[in-house]
Amino acid sequence: MSKVGTDRVKRGMAEMQKGGVIMDVVNAEQAKIAEEAGAVAVMALERVPSDIRAAGGVARMADPTIVEEVMNAVSIPVMAKARIGHIVEARVLEAMGVDYIDESEVLTPADEVFHLNKRDYTVPFVCGCRNLGEAARRIGEGTAMLRTKGEPGTGNIVEAVRHMREVNAQVRKLVNMSVDEVMTYAKDLGAPYEVLLDIKENGRLPVVNFAAGGIATPADAALMMQLGADGVFVGSGIFKSDNPANFARAIVEATTHYEDYELIAKVSKGIGTAMKGLEISTIAPEQRMQDRGW
């Protein structure tokens, strides 16, 4: 008897992406550039986060035509974003055969209270987190992969760094804690107790945790790997740079060899100008994507 959609199958899919770069693309041509550069997966979108930020209004799941076009263009896995709590967008993407769904704060949330019950689906999910409480709640709901939220579409790495450090520091704290302190920690974090116990026992999160939200250069990608990311998502950083193919290749190499500084210097040379960045303090509080979801 075979079983589909088990935790092992869903989490295992994310394990296979480790050490790799997942790139945002908006059409078949960009998807091919990403695959050619060595991306381990692509995220099919209607607009990259910096354009979503610029356009304003309500951001929704991409037109299925775009997702389909990307799925037909490449043999690597294809991910797509659904709005937080939007059961039907998620089911539509699952029905289309998307390999992974990002329940994403980059899109305008459909539900301000509840995230999706991701255990219900055969398709695996990735969700954003800023701290261990958020990470553990998403794991409790059945996410098979995590990523930092960072601040999407800014080309500014500071928030992703904050979130990666926070999650990892809290995991270390939990691991070193005495078991009788865990329940209070669960209460303080708003985290499911059993998920925390499991993390404590194994010494690490039960799913991979990628970096996302603000990666714009090869050095940014390598920085996140050094801080303990299992891999990276690059949203606007590739196709908003002035030479996407160069940036894509250089970011893949810097992610693989994140401790080889001579190599990172070499791959960073003459690749063109990175996307224009955005200082976080200039973003109005209601425009901050990382505050969406809980």
């Binding site: 008897m1 075979s2 079983k3 589909v4 959609g5 088990t6 092992r8 199958v9 295992g12 899919m13 896995p77 699952e94 055969g97 390999d99 992974y100 055969t122 398709v123 695996p124």
Partner: peptide
């Protein structure tokens, strides 16, 4: 694709 991924003995 991924939704067809499975485990079996």
């Amino acid at each position: 694709r991924q939704r067809e991924s499975f485990e079996a003995e």
